[in-house]
Amino acid sequence: MIEINGVSHNYGKSKILQNISLSIKESGITALIGPNGAGKSTLLSLMARLQPLQTGSIMFDGHSVSQTPTRELAKTLAILRQDNALSSRMSLRDLVGFGRYPHHKGRPTAKDHRAVEEALDYFDLQDMSGRFIDEVSGGQKQRALVAMAFCQETKYLLLDEPLNNLDMYYARSLMKRLREIADTGKRSFVIVLHDINYAGAYANEIIALKDGTLAIHGPPQDVLETNALQTLYSMKITVTQHQDQLVALHHL
């Protein structure tokens, strides 16, 4: 379980997050949504200890992110960042392999190699595993980064807009795979999503942030609701139903 307690965050004078408290259940997919600048990425990076906490606390299974040694946390949680400035020239296989670093500390065993091959297979990267990261497309790079986070075999995975750069085919197949993994009950995902329909279709729970405060926290049917969405995004959105799936018509 992830427990976030009284977390506020400022950059200079601007308040990015204000007194966020919530808890995220074990296993399953939690979607983090909200308009641009709502503080989603900041919250995620605080959860992943990429920035020091200013106030409040964040605990993973009772282990505080600010007090647990970072090498221990690397076996509990992994993060995929949105603005991935990763510019290292590395083959996809090597890159994915570095996801195993917290486990092997530079001396990979047969188990680590096997995990890398599995991740490459699972995310359809086997064909291009020898190519350098600066020689593949944005979508292929994105998949490799997801595979790297997956390979870290942590109980919690924090993904900041994993669908960036992915076409419809790979976006859907990635979400299906994440759903599959979540359904095994071994791993939990917290995913920042911009497409509300993906959140509605694949998440167990949705957390909506607006202006640095918690707006809604509940199951998809609470959020995919015309009034709730219109208040959240300050725009006209119609929610309709297709078979038994709620769909937000945000593009019309």
Binding site: S45, A48, R49, L50, T70, R71, E72, L73, A74, K75, A78, I79, R81, A85, L86, S88, M90, F98, G99, Y101, P102, K105, G106, Q152
Partner: peptide, 19 residues
């Protein structure tokens, strides 16, 4: 390996549990 990870950036280093 540690220097390679540092070359990937600060966030990647922290994520992989490096000081």
């Amino acid at each position: 390996d540690q220097f390679t990870i540092i070359g990937m950036g600060k966030d990647a280093s922290i994520n992989l549990g490096l000081n």
